[in-house]
């Protein structure tokens, strides 16, 4: 139940983001079914947007593989991080199944949860976002503009509100977290606004920022033993 509840804000955010993806996929020439199939089997935003671009342009499969690998490489970091928090209910079959649902937001909420996480929590957490992501894609692709533009625009900020709610409380308590967040955000702005770097793809920006800021934190602000598990309560 905890998992389902924690998944609601993610699901709401996904509903609006995937709505836009659905519209985009159909405008690139994909069928409604293909758009929904992509969302059901990928459950990621940046990778899917790049993917439909490659399909529309008739790119090679190698290009598709490389693009997905680079854009989604950050999930490997998240999987490693999350693998340290799993309780004994996570047997191999559960790891095969639950790993499918590791997204930026699901990872953020799961890693912000106190203590170890069970497979039940993880499945609960994945359920609403999966439904939201798939439904939003279907609605966007099939029906085009269902919501008024003003509502759609406002929903776009939901996911960022959630991010802020995850990292602001621990950043108040621990200077290391504050520095890591600020450094990563600053670096991300450099990629956005400095022309030389602005060609770097979104997925790569996240990888570089995550590696650099986490290394900085680990080097200058090591946390005491045992503190890692309990201090990341959101």
């Amino acid at each position: 139940m905890d998992g389902l509840r924690d998944g609601i804000p993610i699901g709401l955010g996904y509903l609006s983001v995937s709505f836009g993806f659905g519209i985009m996929a159909v405008s690139e020439g994909l069928s409604v079914f293909a758009a929904v199939l992509i969302s059901m089997t990928n459950l990621t935003s940046a990778g899917q947007v790049a993917g439909i671009g490659i399909i529309a342009a008739g790119g090679t499969l190698i290009e598709m593989m490389l693009a997905q690998l680079i854009i989604n490489m950050r999930y490997s970091l998240m999987s490693i991080s999350l693998s340290q928090k799993l309780d004994s209910s996570f047997t191999t079959p559960h790891r095969f199944l639950a790993s499918f649902g590791i997204t930026d937001e699901i990872f953020a909420v799961a890693s912000g949860k106190n203590g170890e996480i069970s497979n039940r929590y993880m499945y609960g957490l994945i359920t609403v976002p999966f439904i939201g992501w798939t439904t939003g894609t279907l609605l966007g692709a099939a029906a085009g503009e269902i919501l008024p533009a003003s509502v759609k625009a406002a929903l776009g900020i939901a996911i960022y509100g959630m991010f802020l709610a995850i990292f602001i409380p621990p950043a108040r308590k621990a200077v290391g977290v504050l520095v890591v967040v600020a450094f990563s955000a600053g670096l991300s702005c450099c990629f956005e606004y400095i022309p030389v770097f602005s060609g770097v793809s979104g997925g790569f920006v996240i990888i570089i920022c995550a590696l650099a800021a986490s290394a900085l934190g680990a080097f200058f602000f090591p946390v005491k033993d045992g503190e890692e598990a309990e201090s990341s309560d959101g």
């Binding site: 950050r74 970091l77 998240m78 490693i80 991080s81 340290q84 930026d104 990872f107 953020a108 890693s111 912000g112 960022y160 991010f163 802020l164 995850i166 990292f167 621990p170 950043a171 290391g176 977290v177 890591v180 967040v181 600020a182 450094f183 990563s184 955000a185 600053g186 670096l187 991300s188 702005c189 956005e192 606004y193 920006v205 996240i206 920022c209 995550a210 590696l211 650099a212 800021a213 986490s214 290394a215 934190g217 680990a218 602000f221 090591p222 946390v223 890692e228 201090s231 990341s232």
Partner: peptide
């Protein structure tokens, strides 16, 4: 361990701003 502890915060910072 310290590195992995900071990864989620670093990812969120970069994804949220700007």
């Amino acid at each position: 361990k310290n590195f992995l502890y900071y990864v989620p915060y670093a990812v969120l910072g970069a994804m949220t701003i700007p």
